[in-house]
Computed example of a mutant assay.
Amino acid sequence: MTELTRSHGKKSIRASLQPRDLMAETTPAHAWLASVITLFPDAFPGVLGHSLTGTALKEGLWSLETTDLRRFGLTKHRNVDAPPAGGGAGLVLRPDVVGAAIDAARVPGPLVYLSPRGAPFTQDTARRWAAGPGVTLLCGRFEGVDQRVIDHYDITEVSLGDFVLTGGEIAAQAMLDATVRLLPGVLGNAASVEEESFSNGLLEHPQFTKPAEWQGRTVPPVLTSGDHAKVAAWRRAESEALTRDRRPDLWARYRPD
């Protein structure tokens, strides 16, 4: 369950609190802040309200605000789009509508438009965002956003991958999840971040747990040997092999010819 407050088209989201949650009752002024401009504010927090990111939201380690783009629409129908100049299929989000929403919603930190033509979102991107005060994400729809808005606000375009979605909301949640988990105190074990995929330019090594044997397959003996140096060497070798086989692009950067 979430508690929602609305003001001028903006919705602040935090977990509803019980009496025992007195320390989380107000979000600290220094908490990392995500602001999302979207036609579908009710899509948030979505999956971000669950698991570790949801707990961190409840505890005030980060905060989330959504701004309903439709609130800035024109005429009684709240129109936010118009046909593309020069003709063509689809509709384009108007610069006057999007600009007004940005002025109302922008928070300190990067201003980002989620776009398939943007630079790829990577673990390094998440680290940079997490190191700052927050981020403002503009979720596109239809044929995109009028280029004049992007140029006027010097917006950074970022892509989740080489594919096209119906809008930026899913991409926004994925990018926020990747970023929020890097904030101090969100993960119970900080070492988890240091050893996972992309943290050192490699894919993560295989993981094993109990039971020692399952369906005729056993845990590699080195992992139960108690020799930490051998375990580290095995994990590094496995990471290198996986990266070389599955991601030659990463391997070329990690170990160029």
Score class of each variant (00 low, 15 high):
152 H>T: 15
181 R>N: 11
144 G>S: 09
183 L>W: 00
181 R>L: 12
156 T>Y: 03
172 A>I: 12
121 F>P: 04
91 L>G: 04
117 R>H: 15
121 F>T: 07
184 P>Q: 02
94 R>I: 09
185 G>H: 01
92 V>Y: 05
179 T>S: 10
131 A>H: 01
103 D>W: 08
171 A>L: 08
153 Y>N: 05
108 P>R: 02
142 F>D: 11
132 G>K: 03
118 G>E: 12
143 E>W: 03
148 R>M: 12
125 T>H: 06
162 D>N: 12
136 T>I: 03
177 D>T: 06
180 V>Q: 01
134 G>F: 00
193 V>L: 15
188 G>Y: 00
113 Y>C: 09
155 I>G: 02
171 A>R: 04
137 L>P: 10
127 R>V: 03
123 Q>C: 06
133 P>L: 07
112 V>H: 00
90 G>W: 08
107 V>A: 06
141 R>C: 14
144 G>T: 12
171 A>M: 07
92 V>P: 11
134 G>A: 10
112 V>L: 00
155 I>Y: 03
117 R>P: 04
185 G>F: 04
129 W>G: 01
120 P>K: 13
98 V>D: 00
103 D>A: 11
186 V>D: 05
91 L>I: 13
98 V>P: 09
112 V>E: 00
115 S>M: 06
105 A>N: 08
130 A>Y: 01
148 R>A: 13
122 T>N: 06
168 G>S: 13
185 G>C: 05
106 R>L: 07
166 T>A: 15
184 P>V: 04
187 L>I: 13
154 D>S: 15
102 I>C: 05
115 S>W: 07
149 V>Q: 06
153 Y>M: 09
127 R>N: 10
194 E>T: 11
92 V>E: 12
143 E>V: 13
105 A>Y: 11
99 G>V: 05
109 G>V: 07
170 I>W: 04
152 H>S: 14
160 L>S: 09
160 L>M: 14
165 L>A: 12
165 L>I: 10
102 I>L: 08
134 G>Q: 00
